[in-house]
């Protein structure tokens, strides 16, 4: 399945934004995954830690918001500077 590569896209994008915003660590990340997105939420949550290892998100908590459409949306993230 493609959840791992999509999770890696998310990590890449999150790190890019975190660096740009001068954050040191991402503590929490929220995504929205719709029923019609073609993404399985459970497998996404399962592969997320692997994708996040050795990144600014290695300790990040993943929050998945559900919806009924095709959304695969990077909603927000909580970062700190330590």
């Amino acid at each position: 399945m493609h959840e791992l590569s999509l999770a890696m896209d998310l990590i890449e994008r999150a790190e890019e934004i975190a660096r740009r915003e001068n954050a040191k660590r991402v503590r929490q990340i929220e995504v929205e995954i719709g029923d019609l997105s073609g993404i399985d939420r459970e497998s996404f949550a399962f592969v997320f830690p692997e994708a996040a290892s050795n990144s600014l998100l290695s300790e990040a908590l993943l929050v998945i918001r559900t919806s009924s459409g095709r959304e695969f949306q990077f909603v927000s993230m909580e970062v700190d500077d330590v």
Partner: peptide, 25 residues
């Protein structure tokens, strides 16, 4: 935009509102 809407949280944390599609790439 170069800088995203950010909300300051307790304990030196910030919430960055990203709101973009990951299918965009």
């Amino acid at each position: 935009g170069p800088s995203l809407p950010t909300l300051t949280l307790p304990n030196n944390k910030r919430r960055i509102s990203v709101e973009e599609s990951l299918f965009e790439k």
